[in-house]
Design a protein around this nucleic acid. Structure first.
Lengths: 143, 143
DNA sequence: ACTAATAAGACCTTATTTGTCATATTATTA
DNA sequence: TAATAATATGACAAATAAGGTCTTATTAGT
């Protein structure tokens, strides 16, 4: 499995916040209930998303979390990397020159290309698109 | 990190066998030394590659391992998946219908597309290409 | 029989993931 | 100021996986 469960939770939570709260404030506990995510674990994930600049958190009564910027300016790669750290296909991609075999290694370029393709796909997918699609699918399903 | 160290070792070992043994028999211990891979660990990896049909192993004196088929018929995806099992971006891709949210889930298709792009890149890279490139790089480096 | 190789499986250690729990902090309202 | 409702933080625990070792078979050639 490439992505951790936490990253999956993060994506679902972000979509939930974008969709249900619609730009306003959402309460982590309610997101957890709606999305069927372990509640306390989700608070941890939300903290990381907030530290990563994707969410704004407000404590106290009538607090909660909201998107830190418009959903159109958030993409899937950002969400995933905020939780998982940089997505790297292989050790040798951590930093150029780190691997002693690099100058004679025939696979370096292949790993790099595969990684780029993957990240590109995630980057091209905005939270706005996901939220829109979520609404579509939901209305189609219920109606 | 997406790929395990074991998968990286496997790829390097396969290239080594294709390059050095050149279709003939290679000895696991020597591959380990040349490629700087923990020896006993490599025997485990080689066993999995043999079970997966990528290598043929022969016991006894003058035994060893060799490619089970021409290097042109082996690709990077096969090597990686033989060691890691199916490469899956997310839980929900294990089997259609497994996830209860699937009918209203906006990300399923995106995970699927990203995964396909990644695997396609690995599939397009044959062991023959890697071995060829390894020889090139090595002669360029030493000459 | 001896030797050189892989096969197999038990085992261990360490790191990471996935969580839980208790407590602190902050902000609002009464 | 007290009560309440929310997040923040850090310690902890359990489950899982990764990385690696060790021992004992098994097989084949000489």
């Amino acid at each position: 499995m490439i992505l951790s469960r936490g990253a999956g939770y993060a994506v679902r939570a972000m979509i939930d916040i974008a969709t249900v709260a619609n730009g306003g404030v959402a309460i982590t506990r309610e997101v957890a209930t709606r999305q069927d995510i372990p509640q306390v674990f989700l608070t941890k994930i939300v903290q990381r998303l907030a530290k990563g600049g994707l969410l704004e958190a407000h404590r106290g009564a009538y607090g909660g979390v909201r998107l830190a910027r418009p959903a159109a300016d958030i993409n899937l790669r950002q969400i995933v990397e905020t939780i998982e750290g940089p997505v790297l296909l292989n050790d040798c991609l951590i930093q150029p020159g780190k691997c002693p075999r690099e100058s004679t290694c025939p696979i370096y370029d292949v790993w790099l290309e595969a990684e780029e393709k993957l990240l590109e796909t995630l980057e091209n997918c905005s939270l706005a698109y996901l939220a829109e699609r979520s609404k579509e699918l939901c209305s189609k399903h219920s109606g």
